[in-house]
Design a binder for these strands. Sequence first.
DNA 1: TCGGTGTTTACGGAATTCCGTAAGGAACAA
DNA 2: TTGTTCCTTACGGAATTCCGTAAACACCGA
Lengths: 221, 221
Amino acid sequence: MFQKVLINDDHDAILSSITQILKSAGVNVIERAQYCDEAYLKLKKAQLETAEFDLLITDLSFKRDHRNANLENGEDLIQKVREDFPNMSIIVYSMKDQLQKVRLLVNQYGVNGYVCKDRNGSKELYEAIKSVALGQVFLSPQVDRALHPNANMEIDEFDIQLINLLSKGWSQDDISEDLKTKNISPNSLSTIEKRLNKLKVQFKANNTIHLVAITKDLGLI
Amino acid sequence: MFQKVLINDDHDAILSSITQILKSAGVNVIERAQYCDEAYLKLKKAQLETAEFDLLITDLSFKRDHRNANLENGEDLIQKVREDFPNMSIIVYSMKDQLQKVRLLVNQYGVNGYVCKDRNGSKELYEAIKSVALGQVFLSPQVDRALHPNANMEIDEFDIQLINLLSKGWSQDDISEDLKTKNISPNSLSTIEKRLNKLKVQFKANNTIHLVAITKDLGLI
DNA sequence: TCGGTGTTTACGGAATTCCGTAAGGAACAA
DNA sequence: TTGTTCCTTACGGAATTCCGTAAACACCGA
């Protein structure tokens, strides 16, 4: 079992809950953070004192407050942690259940577990901690199929970026021009329209506004 | 202090946390629900047994799952509870911190407290329970100004509904026609355009897509 | 090399949205 | 009553998006 664990979540209620779970799993040293910057500093400090953490449990979404944050969300933190502590285990404990996001975290950042904060979140987190301690990867059942890309729709980075820019107020023409200046292909207005049409069919969207709203709900952007 | 309290939240971790808080506030009888329908049934059952609850603490957002829900979210539940149990105290304990939503809940549904699940959510919930027990209305500091409408932008229910329908894929013309059949005024395409223009200025949106994306991020829709 | 397939690009007309101008009407104070 | 203000409605041209057709091009297996 893990010896020293850092938990990072902005809700005090969740921190208490995770602490309970860790204790019942047999973890002795538990530290808490409520900001990603704070979490990172604690990890660094432990490293200097050669008493490193061996597990990080973190949320993804953090509410901003008056402080200005360097690492704004869990994804930023995970990216940084993976650079500096490649051997540390990471479990994500989040409300998000978007396959896209899970896949990114597991495949790109190599997180070891992904648990959905949910009706049974506590129980699943307990299982995740035990599994990850044994060197396995744990995914909540709801997002398990994230890593089995078979049954999944084909939408690539270009599509995501497209919708993302639209949601930021860019016109289709803006996007086309921008891609041309950056020499990124495809970049024609025509292709952008075609891609959007494909996406509208896939997501059963009546128009572009609808498409953006749907994908926002899905957490794709 | 309250005698019998029902808590309703879909996260088991949060339920445990609230239970702890209630115990430390001196509440003896605590029941839990993880679905709005379940909560409503428990309230009704208690009424039949003439052992009514005197406080309901509920979340607003509930994840759907395989069950089909009658009451889909906390707002539905509160509306129903206010009809059937006009004297019951209600505290909302939610992630949402949108003034619009808070104002609606307090003014229209007469909820007695609104606590933001937050870095200090547990502490505030404890205070809220004590205040509401004394007959006061408690609002988290973050949303306190919701009831002081002075510094707030003027967006009415019509505006919200407008953006909401747009996000569901309706065209401006669709909306106009629908309003006409329902004899709701204003309903002209022209006014819809004008309202949208005003909103775009207010939210610094470049176009309608942008507007929908922004208001979705703000939780207005 | 030759089709077949799929993607990118171009183009044009239809539909919709955008945006300014202006008239009609209700509320209100002088 | 009159004038002011605010909201609603109407209209028209410009801009943008929507949608179908079709050509250009790359990739790949036969």
